[in-house]
Write a protein that binds this DNA or RNA. Sequence first.
DNA 1: ATGCCCTTGTAACAAGGA
Length: 264
Amino acid sequence: MRFATWNVNSVKARLPRLLDWLAGTAPDVLCLQETKVPADGFPAAEVQALGYDVAAYGQGRWNGVAVLSRVGLDDVRLGFPGEPGYPDPEARAISATCAGIRFTSIYVPNGRTPDDPHYTYKLAWLAALRDALAADVAAGPTVAAGDFNVAPTDDDVWDPRLFADSTHVTPPERAALAAVRALGLRDIVGRPLKGDRPFTYWDYRAGMFHQNKGMRIDLVYATEDVAGAVRDAVIDREARKGKGPSDHAPIVVDLDWTAPGPAA
DNA sequence: ATGCCCTTGTAACAAGGA
C-alpha cells in the first residue's frame, strides 16, 4: 500500500496539479494540509472521479486539512479532544481509519515569532496533539503525517545560522516534537531525489528551490508496526517544479501492508 | 534547466505563511 502527505497551499489553486499527481502517483491514502477551503468548498467530485473517498475539514481562507482514501475511510474525526483554539477552534487535524491504519493529517500552527502569542499556541497545540495521539498509538497502527512546522534538527534547515531566534528551530518546539515521538512513533524520513538532504519545503522567493535552500518540516510519524513495513519513502520534488507548484513537496511512503480483514 | 513569492478576501491593499 502507498500513502502520502502533502501541504498543497490551497486545494483550489492546486487542483489541476493535484489531480495529475493523484493519477500519476496513485497513493491509496493522501493526507492534505492547507486546503484553504471550507469542507463544502472542497473539490470532492473531481477527486471521487479518481476513485477516492474524501474527508475534509475546513473553515475558509486559512488552514484546512483532509484525508483522501481508496482503501476505506472510517471513523472520521475532526480535530481532537483537548485541542486548543486561537481562541476559536481551527481546522488543523483530521483523522480517519484506512486499511487498518489510523491516519491523522496534521497542520501545526506556524508560531510566527517566539515572542508572539501564536508561538505559545503552537506549543500548547503540540502538547495536546501528543496527548490525543497517545490513545491512537495504544489502540493500533497509527500514522501522524503532515506539516509540523518544526525542523527536528539543524540538519533539517539549509542554513541554521539564518534561523537563530526564529520559529521552527527553537528548543521548546523540538522538545514538543520529541514528546510526540516518545509515544513510540518513528520518524519516516523520505529519500531526497536530488542532493543529500531530505527537505520538503522551499520558499517561493529568491530561487530557493533551484538552490536547494529548503527545510524538512513535513514529517511522517508511524508506530513500529507500520514503520517496520516501510519498503521505501521518497520526497517527490518533481511536484515542486514547474508552473504553479505548492511550496511543499509530497512525501510518498510504500508499505508491505495487508489490511486486516473483517472480523470472523 | 527546477529559475528567482503566493493565496485569499476584499476593493488597492491586508494578512498570513516559515
